[in-house]
Amino acid sequence: MGRLIEDMLLLSRVTRREMHVQETDMSALATDVAEELARDDPQRDVQLSIEPGMAATGDPQLLRIVLVNLLGNAWKFTSKHEQAHVSVGTVRDPEHGPAFFVRDDGAGFDAKYKEKLFVAFQRLHAQEEFPGTGIGLATIQRAVRRHGGDVWAEGEVDRGATFYFTIPDLHVSYSARGEQP
């Protein structure tokens, strides 16, 4: 119950807090979050790939909340795999333009329920199978929308999920990747 109350308060604060916009190193932020997850769960074998040179102009605390929730979900929903793969990067989406993504090879979800993903308390997996409060993705959506962005997901049952989000002022060091958007 305490965790639920904390998550609901966070959801409320994401919507109401004053934004402090600045250039944010998304690669470093994702690395910090991933290192925390690995430190808290050292027995997990998770191969993590984080694209270098990702940046966005936004509120670093809100962007951290987005990555904590998305990487935390990737970590959680790959927990049934002996070896898991999680990647964070950027892509040019035909409809949305440049976007960040967090991809995993975990439990995934049935695409026919994707409209429920970002609704508070709507869970697609049993609490016993994957614990949580059902607030995380709603929090992500609010944080991204505060930046004027959008969030969406693709998934397949037992084949993983990819969550995408846009921040209108997204910067990628394409020279590090050797390609253009």
Rank of each mutant, 00 (worst) to 15 (best):
S12L: 12
G160I: 05
R44E: 12
R103E: 06
A138H: 06
V86C: 01
N73W: 06
L137C: 05
V157I: 11
I140T: 15
M19F: 00
V151F: 03
M19T: 15
A38Q: 11
T139H: 03
V14Q: 05
G132E: 07
A74F: 04
E95K: 13
R64W: 01
V157C: 05
W75F: 13
G134A: 10
A138I: 06
R44G: 12
D41V: 04
R17N: 11
P52I: 07
G89K: 00
S175K: 11
I140A: 11
Q47W: 02
Q22V: 12
A153M: 09
P94G: 07
I5P: 00
D59E: 08
P131Q: 07
L48V: 15
S175T: 14
R39F: 13
S87L: 02
W152K: 00
E35Q: 15
P52F: 01
R17S: 12
D169I: 00
P181S: 13
L117P: 01
V172P: 02
S27I: 02
R159V: 05
P168N: 00
G72Y: 07
F130E: 04
H20M: 10
R39Q: 12
Q47T: 14
G136I: 02
G53P: 05
G136W: 03
A55M: 10
E179C: 08
L48Q: 06
G72V: 11
I50E: 00
P94M: 07
G160H: 07
L62V: 03
G2P: 01
K116W: 10
R142T: 09
A153R: 01
V151Y: 02
E128C: 02
D59G: 08
A84F: 07
L4S: 10
F101T: 03
K80D: 08
L63H: 01
Y174D: 10
S173V: 05
R177G: 09
G148C: 10
L70T: 11
T139V: 05
G178S: 06
D45L: 12
R16L: 15
L124W: 02
R103W: 08
A120R: 12
V66R: 00
D150E: 15
D40M: 12
V144S: 04
F100V: 14
R159K: 15
R103A: 13
Y164R: 06
Q122N: 15
D104F: 06
F165W: 15
D32P: 00
K112A: 14
M1H: 09
V151Q: 02
V91A: 05
D40S: 14
E18Q: 12
P94V: 11
Q83H: 15
T57N: 04
N69R: 14
L37N: 09
R159M: 12
G108F: 08
G106M: 03
A28D: 13
R145I: 03
Y164D: 03
D105G: 11
I65R: 09
Y174L: 08
D7N: 14
G72S: 08
V21H: 03
K114I: 13
G2R: 10
I65Q: 13
T139F: 01
V21C: 09
I5W: 07
P98S: 06
A28V: 07
L10T: 14
T90Q: 04
Q180T: 14
A34K: 02
W75N: 09
F77S: 07
A120N: 03
L117W: 03
D41G: 03
A161N: 11
T15F: 06
V91H: 04
T133E: 04
S12C: 07
D41H: 11
L71E: 00
F163E: 04
